[in-house]
Amino acid sequence: MTLDQALVDAAIDQARRRWPADEPGGAAAVRLDDGRILTSVGLDNMHGSVTLCQETGAYCQAYTLDRRVTASVCVFRDPEDGRYVILPPCGICQERLALWGPEVEVGVPDPEDPTRWLARTLAQVNPYYWALHFADGAWPSHQTHSS
């Protein structure tokens, strides 16, 4: 189960449902190991430190369902031109995704054409993952992350 246009479209559809066309807004979609797609949006809040990334809700739901995330994508609509761009996972979301291993695919913008996207594994996006030091150079297992 990989990152594909259907996953990107699910995130865009969620963003369109949640945010009026004249507002900036984003959403995320994740694919689970059983093929299901979960979507989520971030919380807006006056106090910036309590806001959440777009992906957080879907990650928590996957974890609640005891399912493995195999792919994740985050989109953002630019209010100036209305087009959607792919946002790579921030460092915090990379850490959240690490629970499901280095092979999780994430969407990143194509450096040659930012209107297009590419799928990369978490290990490709984060080749110097800090936790390798504490797991004898191997990606920490789900069990290690959860303990």
Rank of each mutant, 00 (worst) to 15 (best):
residue 24 P to A: 15
residue 24 P to H: 11
residue 25 G to I: 03
residue 25 G to V: 06
residue 25 G to C: 06
residue 26 G to N: 02
residue 27 A to K: 01
residue 30 V to T: 09
residue 31 R to N: 04
residue 31 R to C: 03
residue 32 L to M: 08
residue 32 L to E: 04
residue 34 D to W: 05
residue 34 D to H: 08
residue 36 R to F: 02
residue 37 I to F: 04
residue 39 T to F: 00
residue 39 T to A: 00
residue 40 S to A: 14
residue 40 S to D: 09
residue 41 V to S: 10
residue 43 L to P: 00
residue 45 N to V: 00
residue 46 M to Q: 12
residue 46 M to T: 13
residue 46 M to W: 12
residue 46 M to K: 10
residue 47 H to Q: 13
residue 47 H to N: 14
residue 49 S to T: 12
residue 49 S to R: 09
residue 49 S to A: 13
residue 50 V to D: 11
residue 50 V to K: 09
residue 52 L to K: 14
residue 54 Q to G: 00
residue 54 Q to W: 06
residue 55 E to S: 14
residue 55 E to V: 11
residue 56 T to H: 09
residue 56 T to L: 13
residue 58 A to R: 00
residue 58 A to E: 01
residue 59 Y to R: 10
residue 60 C to E: 15
residue 60 C to W: 10
residue 61 Q to G: 02
residue 61 Q to V: 08
residue 61 Q to C: 08
residue 62 A to M: 03
residue 62 A to F: 04
residue 63 Y to W: 14
residue 63 Y to I: 02
residue 64 T to I: 00
residue 64 T to L: 11
residue 65 L to Q: 15
residue 65 L to A: 14
residue 67 R to F: 04
residue 67 R to L: 08
residue 68 R to C: 06
residue 68 R to N: 08
residue 68 R to T: 15
residue 68 R to W: 04
residue 70 T to N: 01
residue 70 T to H: 03
residue 71 A to F: 02
residue 71 A to P: 02
residue 72 S to N: 11
residue 72 S to E: 07
residue 73 V to G: 02
residue 73 V to N: 02
residue 73 V to E: 05
residue 74 C to E: 15
residue 74 C to N: 15
residue 75 V to E: 02
residue 76 F to K: 04
residue 76 F to L: 12
residue 77 R to A: 04
residue 78 D to A: 09
residue 78 D to S: 13
residue 78 D to V: 06
residue 79 P to D: 11
residue 79 P to C: 10
residue 79 P to W: 10
residue 79 P to R: 15
residue 79 P to A: 13
residue 80 E to Y: 12
residue 80 E to S: 14
residue 81 D to P: 08
residue 82 G to T: 01
residue 82 G to Y: 07
residue 82 G to W: 03
residue 83 R to S: 13
residue 83 R to K: 14
residue 83 R to C: 07
residue 84 Y to N: 01
residue 84 Y to R: 03
residue 86 I to A: 00
residue 88 P to L: 05
residue 88 P to R: 10
residue 89 P to M: 09
residue 89 P to T: 05
residue 89 P to L: 05
residue 90 C to N: 10
residue 90 C to T: 09
residue 90 C to P: 07
residue 90 C to H: 01
residue 91 G to Y: 10
residue 91 G to A: 13
residue 92 I to S: 13
residue 93 C to H: 03
residue 93 C to E: 14
residue 93 C to K: 07
residue 94 Q to R: 15
residue 95 E to H: 15
residue 95 E to T: 13
residue 96 R to E: 13
residue 97 L to V: 05
residue 98 A to Y: 05
residue 98 A to H: 08
residue 99 L to F: 15
residue 99 L to E: 11
residue 100 W to A: 06
residue 102 P to M: 09
residue 102 P to V: 01
residue 104 V to H: 01
residue 104 V to A: 02
residue 105 E to M: 07
residue 105 E to D: 03
residue 106 V to Q: 03
residue 106 V to D: 03
residue 107 G to E: 03
residue 108 V to W: 05
residue 109 P to F: 09
residue 110 D to K: 04
residue 111 P to W: 05
residue 112 E to L: 12
residue 113 D to V: 01
residue 114 P to H: 11
